[in-house]
Simulated assay, not measured.
Amino acid sequence: MAGNDQADDFDRARKIHRVLVMHYVEGLSQAEIAKRTGLSHPTVNRLVKEGHERGYVQIKVTSPLQPLFEIEQRLIAKSSLSEAIVTPSASDQEDVNLANAGRAAADFLLSKLKDGDTICVSGGQGVGAVIAALAPSRAYDVTVVPATGGVQGKYFTDVNHLAAQLARKLQGRAFQIHAPVFAASRAERDVLLQVQSVREVLARARDAAIALVGIGSVLPEESTYRSLMPQGVKGKGELARIGAAGELVAHLINGDGKLCAYALNDCVIGLTLDEFKAVPLTIGISSGARKAAPIASVLKGGFLNVLATDEATGSLIIDILKG
């Protein structure tokens, strides 16, 4: 009896194998298999299902984009990200790679955007790259507001200009903030935050459904943050001493993603980091080797739901997070 059972199982396994090869390798439909083998269509269906249950079928997807998907999954696994968007590092020029990441982030933004949403934005080249790539197929009834104060002399990357550009692309409405990104002192900041127009803009930013921000480097001479620092504020040596690793909505954070003990952090006109983190969907965009450490610090702080970057930068971020 045992021998007969084994023979029956072998015959059934052979029949399952034959059907699976015809279906998945030869590309025949179940109806075609039934016709060719003389089995009924329900029997073929049961054999295919049983083949799956026995583990005979393993589906493997190969793609030239597989390395990018692997970096995305590793970034998600090592952070609080719900989504990572990694694009090819197609050039040695950072602005080219940033533009590619911006296009991918723009597509993602449109996939999440709904009429009635408020979007708060920071200044910077990363946000500019997203807006430049944005190509909506319809108008959106949305409001765009700054997440921080503005910067004199940097028109194309200033938060007010970018908010207006994003609203124009989406055919929505924009609010401007009439205050600098940094006050001269904490007392002056407190006064500016009570100005009605400033207070109303930041209240809208706190209620935003989506935040779109860049991530700044702080130590290199060409870093955006250093160019924003008011004259007379201590520079690179002081930033290194306090362990500054990156900038997010004009706040300095250290390598562990914690707010630095730095006087200028107390002078920011804008959302606090806690207020920023409370926005339901926070999207960060940044690219380049000098941005890897700042991005890693932002991820360690758990500030982002979504990150858009390029392949080379993503690999560097993973190395830092592993270390």
Rank of each mutant, 00 (worst) to 15 (best):
V201F: 03
R186H: 02
Q30W: 08
L321I: 06
E222W: 06
A2G: 10
T282K: 15
E32R: 15
G257K: 07
I76N: 05
L98A: 09
R199S: 12
S122A: 04
P230I: 05
I210F: 02
G27M: 08
R18E: 05
E188R: 11
T37Q: 05
G301M: 00
E72S: 09
T87L: 13
D274P: 03
L134S: 06
V181F: 04
L134P: 13
E50W: 12
A84C: 07
G3M: 12
I295Y: 01
S297Q: 01
L47M: 14
P64M: 11
Q152N: 12
E26D: 14
Y155M: 14
R290P: 08
T157L: 01
F69H: 07
T87P: 14
K277A: 15
V151C: 12
G27C: 04
P294M: 06
G149T: 13
A179W: 07
F69I: 01
V159Y: 00
L192D: 05
A163I: 11
P67M: 15
A135H: 14
P146E: 05
S297C: 07
K15T: 09
L271D: 04
A184Y: 08
T313S: 01
Q93I: 09
G314P: 07
H161F: 00
R290G: 05
R103W: 01
V142A: 12
Y225N: 07
L264M: 07
G302V: 10
P146M: 03
Q58T: 02
A209G: 13
S40M: 00
L228P: 04
V44D: 01
L304W: 02
D107N: 14
S286R: 04
K60E: 08
A13F: 14
A147P: 02
L170T: 00
Q6P: 01
N100W: 08
A289N: 13
I177K: 04
L228G: 03
A205N: 06
A293N: 15
Q93H: 12
R103S: 13
A132Y: 02
I59R: 15
P88H: 01
V142D: 13
R186K: 12
A7L: 10
V21A: 11
H52K: 13
T224Q: 15
L170N: 01
L192F: 07
G216M: 10
M229V: 02
R186D: 03
V298G: 12
L65F: 15
K60Q: 07
G172K: 08
V201Q: 01
P146C: 00
P64S: 11
L316A: 06
P220W: 05
S80Y: 03
A211D: 00
G288S: 05
